[in-house]
């Protein structure tokens, strides 16, 4: 398995897509941070804490980045028919699947770390650390909120990464796989909630009970319970659940798939 992951990292480091994607994401972050700096130079006085705490509104981006990192690792495997080179040599399909998932997860974590460090660093350099204007979080409080948000988000993003991997392995078309992922992570929760509200009764109650345990709903809910260890624990359980279920389904499907 280590050999497989090493090889994936070797490929990732030589893939322009890896750097271009990160570059675009960092540029967007830079643009976002510069908006605060621009406003500060005119009327506002948003401090470091005020800027970074807005990250908690951007959890959805994490789910989108999962799709990108998944694509960076997996893209072209079906299109270029390269999986046959791996299977033919006797590498087990489980190893191939888990190797890709681990590589995707590692890349996501690296992306997260680089993006967070870049944004925090940029805000620290461009914005005042504290502000006398009312209504802004102090740097300390904002970091605590962001830290909690990340702690809740991490397992949920990993769960979503497993969903990305599952979709990629099960659906040969990359576009179709991406749509399936968007459907599962972004649309399904809305459908479940609506169905729960419309169905009413026992079924409706069941659906509404399930609804908060979708990764995106769970991450959105973290804003209201900052510092709650129970919620944090639930997020890790939910993330682990999504990871295990998606991986099991993905593995089952991949083992039965014809490699062409």
């Amino acid at each position: 398995m280590l050999n497989y992951i090493r090889a994936e990292i070797y490929k990732l480091l030589r893939r322009p897509y890896t750097y271009i994607t990160l570059g675009i994401l960092l540029a967007l972050e830079g643009l976002y941070a510069s908006m605060f700096a621009f406003h500060n130079s005119h009327s506002m006085a948003t401090p470091f804490g005020g800027a970074i705490v807005t990250l908690v509104e951007m959890g959805t981006i994490g789910f989108c980045v999962c799709l990108l990192t998944g694509d960076i690792v997996f893209a072209g495997q079906y299109k270029n028919s390269t999986l046959k080179n791996e299977v033919s040599f006797g590498i087990s399909r489980t190893q191939i699947y888990l190797g890709k998932l681990i590589a995707q997860t590692l890349l996501s974590i690296v992306y997260l770390a680089v993006m967070m460090a870049f944004f925090l660093g940029l805000c620290a350099v461009c914005l005042p650390i504290e502000s006398e204007a009312a209504g802004f979080y102090s740097a300390q409080d904002a970091l605590t909120i962001v830290g909690y948000f990340l702690a809740v988000g991490l397992p949920l993003w990993v769960g979503a990464q497993a969903a990305v991997c599952m979709c990629q392995f099960l659906v040969a078309g990359e576009m179709a796989g991406s749509f399936l992922y968007v459907g599962i992570v972004f649309v399904l929760e809305t459908i479940v909630e609506l169905a729960g509200l419309l169905a009413g009764g026992g079924v409706g109650e069941l659906l509404l009970t399930i609804h908060p345990y979708f990764p995106r709903t769970m991450l959105d809910g973290a804003k209201a319970v900052v510092g709650d260890p129970v919620y944090l624990g639930q997020a890790w359980i939910v993330g682990a659940f999504w990871m295990v279920v998606c991986t099991a389904i993905g593995l089952y499907g991949f083992h039965r798939k014809e490699i062409k």
Binding site: N3, Y4, R6, A7, E8, Y10, K11, R14, R15, P16, Y17, G76, N80, S81, T82, K84, N85, E86, S88, F89, I91
Partner: peptide
Amino acid sequence: IEIPSFSPFLTARENLEYYRLQR
């Protein structure tokens, strides 16, 4: 088997090195 398939963005050496590491 059938048409040889490799990562299009890698060189010959890089492609083989990838599989060498993997195996």
